[in-house]
Write a protein that binds this DNA or RNA. Sequence first.
DNA 1: GCCAACGTTGGC
DNA 2: GCCAACGTTGGC
Length: 147
Amino acid sequence: MKTEPNEFSIDDLKRVKKEMWDGVRNYQVRNMMRDEMRVGDFALIYHSNAGAKTGVAGLAKISKESFPDPTQFDSLSAHPDLKSDPLNPRWFCVQVEFLEKFDKVITLIDLKSDPKMKDSKLVKKGNRLSIIQLSQKEFEHIVKLGR
DNA sequence: GCCAACGTTGGC
DNA sequence: GCCAACGTTGGC
């Protein structure tokens, strides 16, 4: 799950323990959160736009399954969607809970040069989704690198 | 700051 | 439904 660390980082998640993953306004990503994520699923936290520290920063888990993203109805939020009907909401989010911060960031450069990651959606060009699915093996490999 | 690679919008 | 124009993302 991508986040810009100057907006919300793994350190912020560690401090607040749990956070609503709101603001997603992409249908594919919404569908992943709404239809596939379940309580207890693991999620790697990825720092984007972080210069040399762009990469995977830590581990979290899903602590609450999808619910309507309240920020879509808030005209003062960063991503209001006034066309979304409160009785039939368009956007959903999940809640994420901190598990651990990795000792070092596994940089995108590391991952791109890693043969075990060569088939991963994470290193494929053109991916702009803020949530990217990994295989079990890819996930376990990154966790091992992080620890 | 640049720009490729998207996704969305809206006229037709 | 098509597609040009536009806006956004995110690595570099």
